[in-house]
Computed example of a mutant assay.
Amino acid sequence: MTITLIAAAAENNALGKDNQMVWRLPDDFKRFKALTTGHHIVMGRKTLESMDGPLPNRTNIIITRQKEYTYEGCIIVYSLEEALAACPQNEEVFIIGGGEIYKQSIDNADKIELTRVHTTVKADAFFPEIDEKKWKLTEKVFHPKDEKHQYDFVFETWVRKIR
């Protein structure tokens, strides 16, 4: 299994505030959809609830501590280990948030698909620091701000150097 973290984070690693994203970047959404469609995606309960339900054309696996929690169209589990065990072992699996789930999974990840948004914002959810001793930046694609994108951003692909 290849475990890929996929996120959009500001220069201060901010992901969101009050369970909402703090920007709207349509080209980031397109890239996210292109990369994750057809795959298993793993997220925390709050991330699911911030999205108006499960994402189509993907297997949505939700991690929660709430033992009675249910959500139509989702597989509910109670730990990252359980979430990964529910995924096909020979495919790429995407961890899509939030901050706590990224923190728990970064040491098991093989790849990071990060949209680095060129701004600093107040937030209550953060992406973990990428340790450049463990990770190698293999691709960078710059996207300037325009009429649909409030900020400049860069699509970054990081791969694990050492386990």
Score class of each variant (00 low, 15 high):
T2D: 05
T4H: 10
L5N: 06
A7P: 10
A8Q: 09
A9I: 08
A10C: 14
N12S: 08
N13M: 13
A14C: 04
Q20M: 11
Q20G: 06
M21F: 12
W23E: 00
R24S: 12
P26M: 04
D28R: 11
A34Q: 15
A34I: 07
A34T: 12
L35N: 10
T36N: 08
T37E: 14
H40I: 00
R45T: 03
K46C: 01
L48G: 12
E49A: 05
M51E: 00
M51D: 02
D52M: 06
T59P: 03
I63F: 06
Q66G: 02
Y69P: 01
Y71V: 07
E72Q: 15
G73A: 07
C74V: 01
V77M: 04
A85F: 01
P88W: 09
N90T: 15
E91N: 13
E91T: 13
F94C: 07
I96N: 08
G97D: 02
E100M: 07
I101P: 04
D110S: 13
K111A: 11
E113H: 15
L114N: 11
T115S: 13
T120L: 01
K122I: 05
K134L: 14
K136T: 09
E139R: 15
V141D: 10
V141C: 05
H143Y: 08
P144Y: 02
P144D: 03
K145N: 11
D146M: 05
E147G: 09
E147F: 08
V154S: 15
E156A: 07
V159L: 10
V159E: 14
K161I: 13
